[in-house]
């Protein structure tokens, strides 16, 4: 139960952060990615600000041997080394990101609006994940 409540609280905080920083708005994201147009650099500050916090938090946790308050151990990804799937997947994701202005976090947060294009994107994104699940199982 405590883990559920913590997850809800962290999700809410993350969603609020995405809203306040306006990363939730595709217009902002596309403006940020548009190098040749009128650049909107605000999201760079959002990312740098977020990294300033997460870098310290992860470093502190490592140095002090702090474990998580809840749950059973940090789940740090085990994979090492850059492989083709990582690069190809990231490249595909980048194209979709540029075509929409949505990456997964803000896309879910934007569902709050109930806007049809956002819902359509959300359904489609889930479909893409399901396709990967079946494709992935077939291709090991």
């Amino acid at each position: 139960m405590a883990q559920l409540l913590a997850s809800l609280a962290i999700g809410t905080l993350f969603g609020a952060g995405i809203a306040v920083s306006e990363m939730i708005d595709p217009a902002r994201v596309i403006g940020f990615l548009d190098m040749a147009g009128r650049r909107d650099p605000t999201l760079a500050f959002v990312m740098i600000g977020a990294l300033a916090v997460t870098i310290r938090a992860f470093a502190l946790a490592r140095r002090q041997g702090v474990t998580q308050a809840l749950g059973s151990g940090f789940s740090i990804p085990a994979a090492n080394g850059i492989d083709g799937g990582l690069i190809l997947g990231s490249a595909i994701f980048g194209i979709g990101w540029g075509l929409s202005g949505f990456c997964p976090g803000p896309a879910i947060a934007a569902l709050y609006s109930g806007l049809w294009p956002v819902i359509a994107f959300g359904i489609s994104m889930l479909t893409g994940m399901v396709i990967f699940k079946f494709w992935g199982e077939k291709n090991g």
Partner: peptide, 16 residues
Amino acid sequence: LVLAGLLVGFGTRLGN
């Protein structure tokens, strides 16, 4: 957006 959603969904899973 539907095309983009498919790419984002598939790409993020493949790219971990």
